[in-house]
Amino acid sequence: MLNREIKWYFPETEEEAVAVKRENVDTLYHAGGTGILRTKSQKIKGLIDLSALDLNYIKKEGNTIRIGATSTYSQICKTSLTEASLQMLKGAVSRAGSTLLRNRITMGGSLIDAPYWSDLFSTLLCLGAHLTYRRLDLTVETCTVKEFLDRRLKKENVLIREVILPVKEDLIFFVRRFTRVFFDYPVFNLAFCAKRVKKKGGEYAIGEPAIFVTGVKRFYRELTEAEEFINNNIVDSRLIEECMKHVDAEFTPDRNFGAEYKLLMLKSLFKDGLEELLPNFIKTGDQ
């Protein structure tokens, strides 16, 4: 439960919302509210509800998919858009929390809250997603999700507006989560995406791979060694075996799993994902 005397604000524009925030230091932006309630913080003096703002949409614009900050995970799962990058994101968020929670968890809230178990970030990082946000001085900035995580922003002071996914042709991908039981928060998340590039001999190779894992020390890690190893290669069983030697990440041990065990599971899930992609590399007749 939060402070009994908390004050609510219901702005109708982004400018109004930011003005309230600027004048009231101990207020937070409120979308779904699940992250705010988890804090049980008595220090929060006010909440700025964003539901009246025009930030609830999922749409294709040119070569991008734009997802408004107050769009819920369920809305992402139900969208009829079929672009591969959105399918990858659907795969990531469709197992987050539970159906009940997915009906409340929003994109914007997740970006600000960023818990280590979030199912969102490995996929957004892989896709090279961007986001736009409004600062207290009303300026709008755009950056990649990676930059957003790396910047030393006071995140509660920014109003997330939207996430922008690139539409990528010939995208192949997989998303994996390691959990104790099927319906559980993940210990870590793994996401992989790449282009399927046709070679002269009619074979397909991996191009521009991106591999990210979250739930590790310092929140996320890009598996650059593995990326370099498989880039421009045709995937087969031998390559997958070899690639495992290039998978490395630093985990923190917890009461359930040791760091070594987590790394072992990361390799296992990575191998499983690559093997699932094998049919994409079968040589076709047209050359």
């Binding site: 409120h30 509210g33 929670l101 409340r104």
Partner: peptide, 25 residues
């Protein structure tokens, strides 16, 4: 904590955990 679902209500027809929603919103 939003884990058990016993507090479920429909919000505009969508099932949600009422313990994870601030009433004023």
């Amino acid at each position: 904590e939003g884990e058990c679902g016993s507090c479920t209500v429909l919000l505009d027809g969508e099932a949600v955990p009422s313990c994870q929603i601030l009433a004023m919103s």
